[in-house]
Design a protein around this nucleic acid. Structure first.
Length: 111
DNA sequence: TTTATGGCTGTCA
DNA sequence: ATGACAGCCATAA
């Protein structure tokens, strides 16, 4: 059997995402960096997109570098993400953007 | 194998 | 602020 490289990477990505506390957000690039995959933000998005529904990974706490919820393949799904974040206290401005200054997660280990 | 497409990002006009 | 582009790399065809 051929080893599936993405499994190990995705595991690392999920591990990082699981560390994001409630009411905080991280960018794809940040997650990639913390997972040892600097510059591969896109893979983070890909990994999160592949998450099964029942997973306990807080995928909704990951947004793009512009502080916005990325438009997704399935319609309405991004609105759900915003609602989940709001429920945790994350505020959106009228441009549907989050102030990363205020809500971005800052783990000590990588500051 | 090659091509096209992604829940992205930084840089430059 | 907005748009175009080039990197990144896994997956599907």
């Amino acid at each position: 059997m051929r080893p599936v490289a993405s499994d190990a990477r995705w595991e690392k990505i999920y591990a990082v995402v699981r560390r994001i506390p409630r009411g905080r957000v991280a960018t794809y690039g940040q997650v990639g960096f913390l997972a040892g995959l600097a510059g591969q933000a896109r893979q983070v998005g890909y990994a999160l997109a592949a998450l099964p529904q029942g997973s306990r990974v807080p995928w909704h706490r990951v947004i793009n570098a512009q502080g916005r919820v990325s438009p997704r393949a399935l319609p309405g799904w991004d609105a759900v993400q915003r609602q989940l974040l709001r429920r945790e206290g994350v505020r959106f401005d009228r441009e549907a953007r989050v102030s990363l200054e205020r809500f971005q997660w800052r783990p000590r280990s990588a500051r």
